[in-house]
Computed example of a mutant assay.
Amino acid sequence: MPFESCKKWYVARSLPRQESRAEFQLLQQGFSVFLPRVMKTIRHARKLRTAPTPVFPSYMFVALDIGRDRWRSINGTIGVASLIMQGEAPVPVPVGVVESLLDLVDEDGLIRFDRDLCEGQSVRVLAGPFTHAVGVLERLDANGRVRVLLDIMNGKVSAYLDRSALEAA
């Protein structure tokens, strides 16, 4: 993602569940957009499926040079509710916030919060049948598999999971 030194990151709020549409429309207008996504397990009608979902539902980041870019057109873009404003001007995101999120993006364009996991650490499951369960990371495997001791129903259960399904708790 090309980034010029005079540009800053700003937050655009999308209409509910229209983040992808807003991202597409902004990209078509030539704006640099970052919509952080993670893989998440979605339960619907007793079925589980894993899909990329936004880290911050209804919010995305747009790189702008306020003095040069036509930033007011963002507020009229299909799928966008508005830029986050303070008075008459958009509010920039503090330096380092978006950059640290960009550092966590993998080759598939998804945020990976599991890069800094270590054995003995408390973790939370993000995807799969144990979504939202908390446990202790017991073992890391070179193949991306981990063994986690989960606290379920007042007991400890050992489970093998994919490393990307965990985040530090």
Rank of each mutant, 00 (worst) to 15 (best):
V105R: 03
L26T: 07
R46C: 04
L48P: 00
S14T: 15
C118G: 05
L48G: 00
P94V: 11
K8E: 14
R115S: 06
N75V: 03
T53Y: 06
E88N: 12
V105D: 01
L48S: 07
Q86G: 10
I111K: 01
V93F: 04
W9E: 08
K47C: 06
A22D: 04
V33R: 06
V80Y: 05
R37S: 03
A45L: 14
W9N: 10
D106N: 15
T50A: 10
K47N: 08
K40C: 08
F34G: 02
V62P: 03
N75G: 07
V38D: 01
R43V: 15
E99L: 09
M60V: 05
R46F: 13
G87N: 06
F113R: 05
F61V: 09
V11R: 01
M39K: 08
P54R: 04
L15S: 02
I111W: 02
L26Y: 06
Q18V: 09
W9L: 05
G67T: 05
T53W: 07
S82W: 05
L101S: 02
A63P: 09
V11S: 00
P94R: 15
R72E: 13
T53F: 02
V55N: 00
K47R: 15
V38Q: 02
D114S: 14
D65N: 15
R17D: 08
L110A: 05
R21W: 04
Q18A: 14
T41A: 13
C118L: 15
M85F: 08
M85S: 04
L110T: 06
P54M: 03
I74P: 01
M39A: 03
P90W: 13
P90A: 09
G30D: 10
A89S: 12
Q18P: 01
V11H: 02
V123A: 11
R112Y: 01
W9R: 13
Q18L: 15
R37G: 01
